[in-house]
Design a protein around this nucleic acid. Structure first.
Length: 303
DNA sequence: CGGAGAACCTGCCTGC
DNA sequence: TGCAGGCAGGTTCTCC
């Protein structure tokens, strides 16, 4: 479900609630939500109870809460995950998989409910490793300070590329990687090892804005065209973030259960059969990578 | 090794 | 009303 803007909305909502809080309770209702945690079960809880949360950090679609140990609690929302802040004693959310109980020094006790319909999402306790470039591991909303967690990253996130709104993202490295890729541009945009945070919605939106066909070979883009595309990606991600993300239904919500408004601004995704806002040609939907690709057949020609 | 497709899951909506 | 089929915002594994 969630791409960078939606995950960032969750991160920023979590940050004030969890920073400096102590983990006093962990309940796992479905161990399948620990699929990225090794080993499964007990050790997950043992490594969390009594620990203090230092921050809420995000790279691409991965979220983690560094702990006052050498580990972090890694959260991935998958296609349908939600993180909801609840008052203690609140009625269980439907499809509740994991619940954390926190004790915050000023806000008191709080429940963090991890809800996930399809169970592609997960929570995991993971060890932190140094970032390969020595730069901050991800975005935390906190200016760089001399804190060990800032220059580390959970081992299972280390292979994920920086995202395009990360100050340490390298445009040159991205362009170079594109030129080496022997595949279509949409596949490249969705490859989290090249650039992270982009999913099916924002890939279609960025390609529409840059007037590029989704199967255009990645290596065939000129430097100018690739720059246009990266600018479009950033513009769209930031606009979506400013509007609280894209919600089609109650599936994507922020930590308080509220929807985002960017769905009203979509130009291509889900708009098949309706006129292109630029030229009036009907937007087409094609099956691609087991999902839909939406584009204007006139503005976005394969060349 | 890189690239493409399958696999992992459940719930909801549509059409018969 | 019931049910089969299609669809869903992602990542990782396997096969070529």
């Amino acid at each position: 479900m969630p791409e960078l803007p939606e995950v960032e909305v969750v991160r920023s909502g979590l940050q004030p609630a969890v920073t400096d809080a102590a983990l006093t309770g962990v309940e796992v209702f479905d161990v399948r939500s620990l699929r990225r945690h090794a080993p499964r079960g007990g050790a997950f809880i043992d490594q969390l109870i009594g620990r203090r949360i230092l921050a809420a950090v995000r790279r691409g679609k991965f979220l983690w809460l560094p702990l006052d140990s050498d580990r972090a609690l890694v959260i991935h929302l998958g296609m349908s995950g939600q993180v909801l802040l609840r008052a203690p004693g609140a009625t269980d959310d439907r499809l509740l998989r994991i619940r954390l109980t926190l004790e915050h020094p000023t806000h008191g006790e709080l429940w963090v409910n991890f809800v996930d319909q399809r169970i592609f999402g997960s929570m995991a306790v993971d060890t932190m490793v140094a970032t390969s470039d020595g730069l901050p591991g991800g975005y935390s909303g906190i200016a760089p300070v001399d804190a060990a967690w800032q220059h580390r990253i959970p081992s299972q996130v280390a292979h994920i590329a920086r995202d395009p709104i990360d100050p340490s993202f390298s445009s040159n490295a991205f362009f170079a990687a594109l030129s080496r890729k022997n595949t279509g541009i949409k596949r490249a945009l969705l490859d989290q090892n090249l650039i992270s945070g982009i999913g099916n919605i924002y890939a279609d939106e960025a390609l529409f804005a840059a007037r590029i066909h989704y199967e255009q070979p990645a290596a065939s883009l000129s430097r100018t065209k690739a720059t246009t595309l990266l600018t479009a990606v950033r513009t769209i991600l930031e606009r979506a973030l400013a509007e609280g993300g894209t919600s089609f239904d109650a599936q994507y919500v922020n930590v308080n259960g509220q929807s985002g408004y960017f769905a009203h601004s979509l130009e291509a995704y889900g708009r098949q059969g309706t006129p292109c806002s630029r030229c009036g040609t009907l937007i087409v939907r094609e099956q691609f990578m087991n999902r839909g690709s939406h584009f204007c057949p006139r503005c976005q020609r394969l060349r």
